Amino acid sequence: MTAERPPLKPTRDPRVTLDDLVEVLLNKGAVLHLDLIVAVADIPLIGVSLRAAIAGMETMLEYGMMRQWDEDTRAWAERSAARRALDLRAGEQVLARMPGGHLLEDDTRATWRPGTVHLTDQRLVVLRRDPREVLWQAELAAVRAVRLETERTVGGEPRTRVRVHLADGPGALLSAADPGHLRDLLARTCPAPLALDSPGSARPLVPGPDDRALVEGHLWYHEPRRDGPLWRGGHGRITPAGLVWKSPLDARPALVVPAARIIAAHPGTGHGPGGEGTALTVETDSHGTLTLAADDPHRWAGALRSLSGSPPLPAA
């Protein structure tokens, strides 16, 4: 059973700045209890009784608030954006929409063309909005294989791409904000059985071992900054491939540590946002020593130690 988040507790610090206030509102939230009486000449005229919770949407959802509104709003936004962007056929339904792109390849060059990847129950389309152009599209009935490929950018950062093979053509190499999710959706939606490695392979499309999450959930990162480190809340994920952490305010992960770079992990070694004993340190040979915090630091540290080859933590 997943442990419930602890209740919100009020805090007060007269030294806070505007940046601190925004960080608290996004990651922790604030509860307002206001009773106000407006009087003129000592005669009460207007009464105000206000009870409000203000927080970032991620925090609201973590505490079970506004979930249905969030789901309905996201679904409506996806449908509206898709209708504006795509010329949908009669009865065609949009299943997913995410930032991505298409690699245009010819005999002399290969160029990435950014756009938006649309997956419907009939087609896979990469569309550029301005100027409007369909960069690439294929009927789902023609898709025969899908696989994830990893390449390194000019800066050396790994990027996962989606290779799509077609029955009647060479297919394409696509980028996507969530390539694993796109691959899984294609596996469930395409009418023909899909192969993972090649168009002729009979192997079904299944998540690879590096996609399995060992631990996943809310994670704090003590991010180094010029004016001193700052605790930031976000989403962490540990797989056999390594550790990834991303803030909801960032466009891409701020922390990516391959498993081979993790040396050791130690839980409960400091004071985190959740209180004493919630912090953990991670020793790496690529990012130095990292400080993280979680509601269950022993669980996170155990998963990280399994990647580093360190002995398991002693039983509590």
Rank of each mutant, 00 (worst) to 15 (best):
residue 157 E to W: 11
residue 143 V to H: 00
residue 163 R to C: 08
residue 142 A to S: 15
residue 152 R to G: 07
residue 161 R to N: 12
residue 169 G to N: 03
residue 145 A to S: 12
residue 163 R to G: 00
residue 152 R to C: 08
residue 168 D to C: 01
residue 170 P to E: 14
residue 168 D to H: 01
residue 150 T to P: 04
residue 155 G to W: 13
residue 158 P to V: 08
residue 141 A to N: 09
residue 163 R to Y: 14
residue 148 L to F: 00
residue 143 V to Q: 02
residue 148 L to I: 10
residue 154 V to G: 05
residue 151 E to D: 12
residue 150 T to W: 13
residue 163 R to F: 12
residue 145 A to E: 05
residue 145 A to T: 07
residue 147 R to I: 10
residue 156 G to I: 01
residue 166 L to K: 00
residue 170 P to R: 15
residue 161 R to E: 10
residue 169 G to D: 04
residue 140 L to M: 03
residue 139 E to T: 13
residue 153 T to V: 11
residue 156 G to D: 08
residue 160 T to Q: 00
residue 164 V to Y: 08
residue 166 L to N: 06
residue 151 E to C: 07
residue 168 D to S: 01
residue 142 A to D: 15
residue 164 V to K: 10
residue 160 T to D: 03
residue 144 R to G: 06
residue 162 V to H: 02
residue 159 R to V: 14
residue 149 E to K: 03
residue 168 D to Q: 04
residue 170 P to L: 12
residue 159 R to P: 08
residue 164 V to A: 03
residue 165 H to P: 03
residue 145 A to W: 05
residue 140 L to D: 08
residue 151 E to K: 09
residue 143 V to D: 05
residue 168 D to R: 03
residue 147 R to A: 10
residue 164 V to W: 05
residue 159 R to Q: 13
residue 167 A to Q: 05
residue 156 G to P: 04
residue 147 R to E: 14
residue 168 D to E: 03
residue 146 V to T: 02
residue 153 T to D: 15
residue 149 E to A: 09
residue 150 T to M: 06
residue 140 L to Q: 07
residue 143 V to Y: 03
residue 159 R to S: 12
residue 162 V to N: 00
residue 145 A to Y: 03
residue 160 T to W: 02
residue 151 E to P: 04
residue 153 T to Y: 13
residue 143 V to M: 06
residue 149 E to M: 08
residue 140 L to F: 10
residue 169 G to W: 05
residue 167 A to M: 06
residue 140 L to G: 02
residue 165 H to A: 07
residue 168 D to F: 00
residue 139 E to Y: 11
residue 169 G to E: 08
residue 145 A to F: 08
residue 143 V to N: 01
residue 159 R to E: 14
residue 143 V to E: 01
residue 167 A to P: 04
residue 165 H to F: 05
residue 140 L to C: 02
residue 154 V to T: 14
residue 157 E to Q: 13
residue 167 A to C: 06
residue 148 L to W: 03
residue 142 A to E: 14
residue 154 V to M: 11
residue 160 T to E: 10
residue 159 R to T: 09
residue 152 R to L: 14
residue 155 G to T: 15
residue 156 G to W: 13
residue 141 A to K: 12
residue 145 A to R: 05
residue 147 R to L: 12
residue 160 T to N: 00
residue 154 V to E: 12
residue 145 A to K: 04
residue 147 R to F: 08
residue 151 E to N: 13
residue 140 L to E: 13
residue 145 A to M: 08
residue 169 G to P: 04
residue 162 V to E: 01
residue 155 G to C: 08
residue 170 P to V: 09
residue 144 R to F: 02
residue 162 V to S: 00
residue 156 G to E: 15
residue 158 P to Y: 06
residue 150 T to I: 11
residue 154 V to N: 10
residue 139 E to D: 14
residue 157 E to G: 10
residue 169 G to M: 01
residue 153 T to I: 11
residue 139 E to F: 09
residue 152 R to T: 13
residue 148 L to R: 04
residue 162 V to G: 00
residue 146 V to A: 02
residue 140 L to Y: 05
residue 155 G to P: 10
residue 155 G to Y: 12
residue 164 V to P: 00
residue 167 A to V: 07
residue 166 L to F: 09
residue 158 P to E: 05
residue 161 R to S: 06
residue 142 A to W: 11
residue 160 T to C: 07
residue 146 V to N: 01
residue 150 T to H: 09
residue 142 A to M: 09
